[in-house]
Write a protein that binds this DNA or RNA. Structure first.
Lengths: 135, 135
DNA sequence: ATATAATTTTGTACTGTTTACATTTTATAT
DNA sequence: ATATAAAATGTAAACAGTACAAAATTATAT
């Protein structure tokens, strides 16, 4: 809890209750939740919470690099409080999302000569272990 | 034109006029157009075209691996007829999308032991050459 | 402590993309 | 020519996300 307050303060974000709770939820549920998931779970604890606040707060986090958007899903945007380099795997059978380690720094590319790269994203799709064996 | 008919036939897709034209548009405009762009441009030539047909046809292409979805944009889905491995770069200043060559096969990963990977996607964000120099 | 200002949160209405589905049109085969 | 299957169309609806103004909360100054 207090480390979350620290995290927010370090980014010059006033640690309001909603902001703390949303960041806490993101960090404790690293399954890349959607706005809907975050809202439905937190509204139990914060009955006055509005979905707009969740959107606003997540946008705030992203502008301050405390969270990232994951665009692996076509319809719904997902959020991730882990801003270090890592890849995402989506199982097309069960829909689950997994993190994996990827060496993005040594990724060989051609055709980006003078471009400034600020974000690198890697995502795979396929079938996860569970779906391969458990049925 | 006839090579497009071939492409469709090879995937057991009946080459109707709309399908040929949509595939042709995708191949001649490798800027990863949206449904809206494809529709607005083709409806001039095919006045009876409906947006639903564009959606249906693109879904059909994707199911037959003749096109890919690019999920680099948050709001609108983009489509790409080039299904070979390559990365996408989005300029956050001008919004343009660029292709680049990426060695996806030799991408070092950890944590995907027994997973079957069917698709690998790499996309970067940053500032393109034009935006860096031309202003 | 109180008033004032600034910030945060909320709710409603709206926008725009995508889907569902029934109808119409077009192609294919008998 | 007629029946059957496939493709295309149009409308309505679903749904995520945004705009914005009002309300509530928090901070600041007197």
């Amino acid at each position: 809890m207090s480390n979350i307050v620290e995290r927010l303060r370090n980014s010059n974000i006033k640690p309001s209750y909603a902001r703390i709770k949303i960041m806490e939820y993101l960090m404790e549920h690293p399954v890349h939740p959607t706005v809907e998931e975050i809202y439905q779970n937190l509204v139990r604890e914060i009955p006055t919470l509005s979905k707009t606040t969740v959107y606003n707060t997540l946008d705030l986090f992203i502008r301050h690099n405390l969270a990232r958007v994951i665009t692996i899903e076509e319809n719904e945007t997902r959020y991730d409080a882990d801003t270090t380099n890592h890849g995402h795997f989506k199982c097309e059978t069960c829909g689950a999302l997994y993190d994996f380690t990827v060496d993005e720094d040594n990724l060989a590319t051609r055709g980006l000569g003078d471009f400034v790269v600020t974000e690198k994203h890697v995502y795979f799709k396929g079938i996860c272990k569970k779906c391969l064996y458990n049925q």
